[in-house]
Design a protein around this nucleic acid. Structure first.
Lengths: 344, 344
DNA sequence: TTGTAAGCGTTATCAA
DNA sequence: TTGATAACGCTTACAA
């Protein structure tokens, strides 16, 4: 019906049709100033008749604002990041901001072009603290308002929102310790700085008790890697009482393959991980996990970013979100003479 | 180290430092024209020293290009959409385009402001064909290049990329028919137009054989609804041989609750669904599903959109992607005297 | 090969 | 209450 690619109406067209100046139209449509009823009616009508909507780029040139915010994550297919984006998107939408997502997994060198180009197209950035240091440095140097997610923070002068990875590891470690586990295998992912923090917390939980924590490294934090590593991990004499994985995806791969190998979880070995993605409760046994609060992290990070854009000092605000251990069926007590009940 | 919020260098700063005109700088940095080695060297040096990067909004005002493309989906947390975004993001990044995602689930009235504002900020849009008609009409009327995903297509004059839902339903129906199933319950989601197409295909598969297909409607296509509806569905005398769900999330909720109810899948009843999200193979029994090729859809849709932006007639190109039935453990043959082997 | 200058559509300042 | 007008940073004829 409508002719496509028609030249869009400009503020001048509206001004002419309403017989006022462009300045008047601008002030009125931005709600900044009231005019006589008659003038307002003429402008309103002209806007409707011409289907006028302002050109964000032209406005941006003057105001310096793009109306966009960016979120830089590592893999959109990982449900932890998806939750985070979901939370961030909600807050951004409520603030009238468009969300540009940059999936660093898709770019071979995220420190280069992609981020630099993004910086000029947004009013601020929510960035994974797990990004390569060079990439982070580039963003920080640009002077763009930036909020990180993931703790501990890489840059003290910038806000970093989320659960503390060390604390999360500590909590899960204590949980396993209280269940009676003493020989732990940590299936880490050294590609992520967070992994070392989680491991440190895990080890700390067993200080003072006679226990061993052994670490194995996964080449990628994926379900597929979990499956691939399962046999060497589960059949090893060093396996221990419990396996803790860097994230739920690895653990879910482990659980799947454990079934093929005929190894009963949690009877033979407990399995637990981090993130508490939505699918952990659907596998069997349901996966014990530390909820890293992805959605809440995304929400708070975006709220902080909006604060930073408005000039607030958000780095000194409360940016820590407490993690929660969600105990499910993949871990069980092996304390002598005591079996904790567990339900799905 | 660097002073933040410093006024960014402009093309004029570069021109002045390199002792050339702004036109020369513009032509050179855009790679459109070569100059004497000495001039090029001076410009290159000035760009580096001043840390110059061009202002995309200023360029956009002239060229009419934003450098952004949008993807409008219904729920970022649904892995089908996540896969789609992932595919689209890859292609967009390769083309040097930024990806703006709009999650229609987050906006109360997607037909209003959100989309209209988005249209002016992008060079084109990949839009869910499942969006409300009013929202789609708004986008189409704007004249922005647009490619839909999901078939059949809502607008013949625009490309619509993806698997045909009717065909997918037909394929799954035939699969179940061949396994010997005759009494089917379809757990649909009437909130999505696609559901009726899948159902139609499903019914078509049983034409000519003595069979019954009964439909139940879910209020939302989520795991939680699957759980909630499980008992009424699974314990009903009308349950039949097989339950087909509108999507994997519903089916996975069903599978989870079936366990609590003590109903064996697939021994007592087969369960199958659509989408083939990555988590379907991790639950037990592993879920039979029709792969709706989310990632390939996202890739092709974005490729078509880029074509449309360049003025190609992409509606007449090949935009159909064949779906694939992925048989797993949640369906089994009940043909007399014949048990099909099935492996994970 | 290089430069001049006219816009692009908006906002903001200042004047009326 | 309303209007002229100068930016904003860039591209692109066209001129030299």
């Amino acid at each position: 019906m409508s002719s496509p690619r028609k030249r869009a109406a400009t503020i001048r067209d509206v001004a002419q049709a309403a017989k006022v100046s462009t300045a008047t139209v601008s002030k009125f449509v931005n709600g900044g100033q009231r005019f006589t009823a008659e003038v307002e009616a003429r402008i309103t009508q002209a806007v409707r008749e011409l289907g006028y909507s302002l050109n964000p780029m032209a406005r941006g040139m003057i105001t310096g604002r793009t109306g966009n915010v960016g979120v830089v994550i590592l893999d959109i297919r990982n449900p932890y990041f998806t939750s985070l984006v979901s939370g961030a998107a909600r807050v951004a939408a409520a603030a009238g901001l468009n969300l540009i997502i940059a999936d660093a997994a898709e770019s071979t060198s995220p420190e280069l072009g992609v981020l630099q180009s993004l910086v000029r197209r947004v009013d601020g950035l929510v960035v994974s603290a797990r990004l390569p240091a060079a990439a982070i440095q580039g963003v920080v140097d640009s002077g763009t308002p930036v909020v990180f997610f993931g703790r501990p923070s890489p840059y003290a002068q910038h806000a970093s929102v989320g659960c503390d990875n060390h604390q999360a590891g500590l909590m899960l470690g204590r949980h396993l310790r209280d269940l009676g586990h003493r020989r732990i295998t940590y299936l880490g992912f050294s590609g992520a700085r967070w992994s070392a923090d989680r491991e440190r917390g895990l080890r700390e939980a067993f200080q003072g008790v006679k226990a061993s924590v052994r670490t194995v490294d996964a080449p990628a934090p994926s379900t597929e890697e979990g499956e691939r590593l399962a046999s060497s991990l589960l059949l090893s004499p060093e396996r221990g009482d419990a396996i803790v994985a860097y994230n739920d995806l690895l653990a879910m791969g482990l659980l799947l393959e454990a079934k093929s190998l005929g190894i009963a979880v949690p009877e033979a070995v407990s399995v637990a991980a981090f993130d508490n993605i939505a699918y952990g409760r659907l596998v069997s046994p349901a996966l014990t996990s530390v909820d890293m609060m992805g959605e809440a992290t995304g929400e708070l990070a975006m709220r902080r970013l909006i604060g930073a854009i408005h000039g607030q000092d958000v780095a000194s605000q409360e940016n820590v979100i407490p993690p929660r251990v969600v105990a499910r069926d993949s871990t069980r007590s092996i304390v002598k003479g005591k079996h904790l009940a567990r339900s799905a």
